[in-house]
Write a protein that binds this DNA or RNA. Structure first.
Length: 598
RNA sequence: GCACCGUUGGUCCAGUGGUAGGACAUUAGCUUCCCAAGCUAAUAGCCCGGGUUCAAUUCCCGGACGGUGCACCA
C-alpha cells in the first residue's frame, strides 16, 4: 500500500484531513473526520481497556496548559529548544551547538548560553557548512519547541502547552500517591493531546504540532517491586537491540519476553513486561505483526535519565515509524519536581521491622546562642546539627567551632560544647522516604491510527471487480455494521430495515443505514471504511413461515449467513467483542451468493 | 528553517492570456431480489495576496498548503 492512497482515502471517506482548509490550511494540524474520530476513539477505548482497566491502573485528565515553573523543573524550558544560526549568505539554518562541538573539545555545547556559543563561533572562525560564509557575528537564536501562552490577563504568568501528557501526571504525584494510599506500585494513565511547535511537520499524522498521546506512568519501588512477568513470559517478540543495529549485518532477535529479560537483552523487567503487554495489544487492535518490531534506543539517542529504552515501530509505506516508547525513567522526573516544587514527591516506605539506630543529635540552647550570635544564631544551630551528624567526635572538647556563611562572609564561631546539648540518642525508624522510579509506556495514538489504516488497507477482486477494503478489527472499525434494504420498491423491506437499524442503535451499535444505489455499491462503500458486517434485508427473510431473518455479510470474505432479526443485536455485539464469524456459519443457515473473492 | 517540484468540482486528473473539461463520487427520478450495472437530470472547481496586461486560472513576485531532499525529532 502507498500512503498516498491512504491519504486520498482518508480525505474522501472522512478519516482525517489537514485542518483549516478554508483559510489556506495550517501545517501540523489535522482534523479527524467522522470515520477517523470513531476509529481513534475505539483505539483509545481499547488502550484504556488494556493499560488502565486490566492493569489495575487509574486514569486522570490534566490541563493542557501548564505554568512555566513546571517546565523549568522538567527541563523542557532549558533543554527543549534548539540553538539555530542562520547563514546570512545562503539562508541555511544550522544547529549552533553542533557547529561548536565539531571544532572544539566541548561535548555539550547545548548547555552553554547563547552569547558564549556566539563567541566560540567567532573565536574559532566557524563558517557555514553549506556555503563557507563566516558565521562570526551571527545571532544564535533559540527555537523552543513548546507553544507559549499567557495565563490570565495583562502580565499574567507565562504558560506553555504541554509537550507531553506525562508532566500532568508527574506534577500531581503528591496527591495521586494519596489516592493510592501511599502504596507502591501504582500506575496512572492519561490519554490526551500534547503540543510541539515542530519546525517541519511532515507525513500526514506522523509528525503533528498537536497530537494525541496515551501514556502510562508506572510508579515503582526500584528495590522491591517486580512486574508480573509470568503473564507475558511466553509472548514472542521481534527485537532489534542496539548492538544489532550497530553491527554490519545486524539481525532481529526473535525471542520471548521471558528469555529476553533472563538473558539481559531487555535490561529492565518492567520494560520487558510492558513490551509483552503491548505486543499482545497491538495484535488485538490489528497491527500486522510481520510489519512490527521493538527497537532499542542507541546509546546516543537515549535521554540521559533513561537506563533502557525501547520503541515499538511499525512499517508504513516502507519506512519504520515510532508508534510507542517504553522507557525506564528512574527517579528523574519526580526528583526534579521534588527539588523545584513545594510538595514532597516521595512515598514513605515502611520497614518490615522498625530499625533502631543510634543517632547523634544536638539540642542547642537558643537562649544562649541568640544573645551571643544575633542574626547568625539560627545558622549556627543548623551548623551544629550538620556537624553532629558528620563528626560526633567534634563535641568531645570544651568548645565546638562551626563555620557559618559562605565565601567572603564565612565566619567561624566558637560554641561551648554544653550549650550544644550534644547527645547520642537511640531512635526507632519505621521506614524511609523514597522517590519512586517511573516506567513509562508512551503511545502515539495518531501514529497508531495511521499504522492501522496502512496495515488494514487491502485490495482484492470480488466477482471479477477490483475492490478496496479496510480489514479493520471489529472492535476498532468506525462503524459496527451497516443496514441495507436489498431493494427500495417494497415497503416491507424498507420498514424492516428501518426497524433493524433502530434496534441495533438502541443496543449501542454504531450503525450506518444506506438505501442508495445498487447493493454492490453499498457494500463497496462500507468495505472502504472497514465496516466489518453488512446486514441486508431481503424478501426471503420475511416470506417464510417463521420469524423474520436477515443476512449478515462479512467484509473480508463476503460470506453470508442468515440470522433471525431478533438475534441480530446480540450476535453483532458478540462479534464486536471478538467473536468469530465462522461460528455463525455453523449455527445459522449460510447464504449461497455465488460471490468469489480472491 | 532552506532547496526543488506541485496546488483546477468531494476525489483523481486534462487544459487555456479572453474565467474551463473528463472520469469517479454525490443528490433526485426511473429501474432494481446480493457485490462499484443501465437511463435521465442536477449539484459542484481554477489556493491566497500583489504585479504585468484592455483582459490572469494561465505570465512574474510574495505567501499559505502539500510532496521530496537537507536540517531537526528531548
Amino acid at each position: 500500500m502507498a500512503s498516498e492512497e491512504i491519504v486520498e482515502l482518508a480525505k474522501r471517506r472522512g478519516f482525517f484531513f489537514g485542518s483549516n482548509g478554508a483559510y489556506g490550511g495550517t501545517a501540523g494540524f489535522y482534523t479527524f473526520g467522522p470515520q477517523g474520530a470513531a476509529l481513534k476513539k475505539n483505539l483509545e477505548d481499547a488502550w484504556r481497556d488494556r493499560f488502565t482497566i486490566r492493569e489495575g491502573n487509574r486514569e486522570i485528565e490534566a490541563p493542557t496548559v501548564m505554568p512555566e515553573p513546571v517546565f523549568e523543573a522538567s527541563g523542557h524550558l532549558e533543554g527543549f529548544d534548539d540553538m539555530l544560526v542562520e547563514c546570512p549568505e545562503c539562508g541555511e539554518s544550522h544547529r549552533a551547538d553542533h557547529l561548536v562541538e565539531a571544532v572544539t573539545d566541548i561535548e555539550d555545547a547545548e548547555a552553554l548560553p547563547g552569547e558564549e556559543v556566539e563567541e566560540l563561533i567567532a573565536d574559532n572562525d566557524i563558517a557555514c557548512p553549506s556555503c563557507g560564509t563566516a558565521l562570526a557575528g551571527v545571532t544564535a537564536e533559540d527555537f523552543n519547541l513548546m507553544f507559549a501562552t499567557d495565563i490570565g490577563p495583562g502580565d499574567g504568568q507565562p504558560g506553555y502547552l504541554r509537550p507531553e501528557t506525562a508532566q500532568g501526571i508527574f506534577v500531581e504525584f503528591p496527591r495521586l500517591k494519596e489516592y493510592a494510599r501511599g502504596n507502591l506500585p501504582f500506575g496512572i494513565t492519561q490519554i490526551g493531546p500534547a503540543y510541539r511547535n515542530e519546525i517541519s511537520p511532515r507525513g500526514g499524522l506522523l509528525r503533528l504540532r498537536e497530537f494525541t498521546q496515551a501514556e502510562l506512568e508506572q510508579f515503582i519501588d526500584p528495590e522491591d517491586d517486580e512486574p508480573p512477568l509470568d503473564r507475558v513470559r511466553d509472548v514472542e517478540v521481534r527485537l532489534y537491540p542496539a548492538a544489532e543495529q550497530e553491527a554490519e549485518d545486524g539481525e532481529y532477535v526473535e525471542t520471548t519476553v521471558g528469555e529476553a529479560v533472563d538473558e539481559g537483552v531487555i535490561g529492565s523487567p518492567w520494560v520487558g513486561y510492558y513490551l509483552g503487554v503491548a505486543k499482545r495489544w497491538y495484535d488485538r487492535v490489528g497491527v500486522d505483526l510481520d510489519r512490527f518490531r521493538f527497537r532499542q534506543h542507541l546509546a546516543g539517542e537515549r535521554a540521559h535519565y533513561a537506563a533502557d529504552c525501547w520503541d515499538a515501530e511499525s512499517e508504513v509505506d516502507g519506512d519504520w515509524i515510532e508508534i510507542a516508547g517504553f522507557s525506564y525513567r528512574s527517579d528523574y522526573d519526580l526528583s526534579k519536581h521534588d527539588a523545584h516544587g513545594d510538595d514532597a514527591f516521595t512515598v514513605f516506605k515502611r520497614y518490615d521491622e522498625p530499625k533502631t539506630v543510634e543517632r547523634a543529635t544536638v539540642d542547642p540552647d537558643m537562649s544562649v546562642l541568640g544573645p551571643a550570635f544575633g542574626g547568625d544564631a539560627a545558622a549556627v544551630a543548623e551548623a551544629l546539627e550538620t556537624l553532629a551528624e558528620r563528626d560526633p567526635d567534634a563535641f568531645d572538647g570544651e568548645t565546638v567551632s562551626v563555620e557559618v556563611g559562605e565565601g567572603d562572609g564565612a565566619e567561624t564561631h566558637e560554641v561551648d560544647a554544653d550549650v550544644a546539648n550534644f547527645s547520642v540518642e537511640t531512635v526507632t525508624e519505621n521506614g524511609e522516604h523514597l522517590t519512586p522510579h517511573v516506567v513509562e509506556p508512551s503511545f502515539g495514538v495518531g501514529r497508531t491510527v495511521q499504522t492501522l489504516l496502512a496495515h488494514a488497507y487491502s485490495e482484492d477482486e470480488v466477482d471479477g471487480e477490483e475492490r478496496t477494503y479496510l480489514s479493520l478489527e471489529p472492535e476498532i472499525a468506525p462503524q459496527d455494521a451497516a443496514v441495507f434494504p436489498l431493494v427500495t420498491n417494497d415497503d416491507r423491506l424498507t420498514d424492516l430495515a428501518d426497524r433493524v437499524a433502530a434496534d441495533l442503535r438502541e443496543a449501542g451499535l454504531a450503525v450506518a443505514y444506506d438505501d442508495s444505489g445498487s447493493i454492490g455499491r453499498r457494500y463497496r462503500r462500507q468495505d472502504e471504511v472497514g465496516t466489518p458486517f453488512c446486514v441486508t434485508i431481503d424478501r426471503d427473510g420475511i416470506e417464510g413461515d417463521g420469524d423474520d431473518t436477515v443476512t449478515v455479510r462479512e467484509r473480508d470474505s463476503a460470506a453470508q449467513v442468515r440470522v433471525p432479526a431478533a438475534k441480530l443485536a446480540e450476535e453483532l455485539a458478540a462479534l464486536r467483542a471478538g467473536g468469530e464469524f465462522d461460528a455463525l456459519l455453523d449455527r445459522y443457515e449460510t447464504v449461497a451468493t455465488d460471490v468469489e473473492t480472491n
